[in-house]
Design a protein around this nucleic acid. Structure first.
Lengths: 213, 213
DNA sequence: CTTCAATGTCGAATAATTACTACAAATGGC
DNA sequence: GCCATTTGTAGTAATTATTCGACATTGAAG
């Protein structure tokens, strides 16, 4: 019998996922967890074939979730279930060792396909994500960032600028602080965003909070 | 026979809600809509007893949704279904004439209770929201912000913009989302910053995180 | 019923930010 | 050591964002 652990904080979503799984696979056992603590607890109690993991789960929300899971169950398949705010961010989880990636706003068909594929072959990645992944790993990706902290991919000057940006300082202000041309700072900003694969300072602040020690 | 229209863009959530409704009420007819256009179309086609409306639905996202709905079906019960980012400004929808308010992250029990209550009595508001509503309508701005939550000093539209800004959306992007001129959004942004006494979006995100329940 | 502050909205002018492009110096690999 | 990157730095042109002033609505207070 297959068994699946659904880690997701929104009750309705959990409910929906569980219903779909039960409809899709049988016999099957589905266990739900509403936060990361509970997820870990469940993983210690019984073996699962598949873990459907919401990135945004309370108590989780960082790449170490993957290793925490793998520590308990090395062979479990992990399907990252990401809200649309985290799309970009979610890719990092694949690189951190997750086996599949599904967006929360995917149509029902795709959700079904994803779950089924994960159960059958242990992997599921949409073409779109795969492409992004390639682009991502292809370019700038030093070994440092590959295993964990993406901030390590930044150069010294970039880190300086990052720090200031993450505190909300404007480009112009930074240019005065560091005695650089505005365009120079902007160039850094662009490079930082590209390297961290983000698109705005809010996400930047998040990453800094998350990874900056 | 009762009939319900579920307007929500995330397929799994729609799926879950529909399943709960069918489990809860019978006979019942459930129709789903993935965006606001479709919602309006469905409302023109048939009468419903209840509309479960995601605030964040594509094409909607503003208070006029309520009147747009009421224009078609004056007597329909409207249950606002809000993601946790929108809590703060979801209240405005009640004031705009919605009949109930349910948060997306509510536990399954509450979701069931809410739907059932809506169908039976046409209204559903949690004690917590009711309290907030009181605070809100009664004495406002100054007094409100003086004792605690500074976000309460913001007007409805401002709160909407605030949410989007706090997620890192650009002014231009917001203007497209809300169908406003860029300058209008910028005006709100300025007013928000002034009211909250901050100078950049990072601080904004912080406040939102801190006070937006 | 009048009045005033708060709200929602915008346009014109002005300021700030980004996109590209570029290029020399530092660095890393082989 | 030589070649390919990466890094630090800018300028020009194109986009975006902000300022400021305006104006119609609305709701509360008197």
């Amino acid at each position: 019998m297959k068994s699946v652990l659904v880690s997701e904080d929104h009750a309705i979503v959990r409910f929906g996922i569980t219903a779909i799984i039960k409809d899709l696979i049988h016999p099957v056992q589905v266990v739900e967890a509403a936060d990361f603590d509970e997820t870990i607890r469940r993983l210690s109690e019984a073996a699962f074939n598949l873990l459907i993991l919401d990135i945004n789960i309370p108590g989780g929300n960082n790449l170490q979730m993957i290793s925490a899971v793998r520590l308990r169950q090395p062979d479990i398949s992990i399907l990252i279930f990401s809200g649309y705010d985290e799309q970009m961010f979610g890719i990092n989880y694949i690189q951190a060792g997750a086996d599949g990636y599904l967006e929360k706003h995917a149509p029902e068909e795709e959700i079904r396909r994803a779950i089924l594929t994960m159960i059958e072959s242990g992997k599921y990645i949409t073409p779109g994500i795969r492409t992004r992944l390639m682009e991502h790993t292809g370019h700038h990706r030093l070994s440092a960032s590959q295993e964990g902290n993406p901030l390590l991919a930044l150069s010294g000057r970039e880190k300086e600028v990052m720090q200031l940006l993450a505190r909300g300082m404007s480009v112009m202000n930074i240019s005065r602080t560091l005695n650089l041309q505005v365009t120079t700072v902007s160039t850094y900003k662009g490079r930082i965003f590209e390297k961290l694969n983000i698109t705005n300072v809010i996400e930047l602040a998040e990453k800094v909070r998350l990874y900056s020690n």
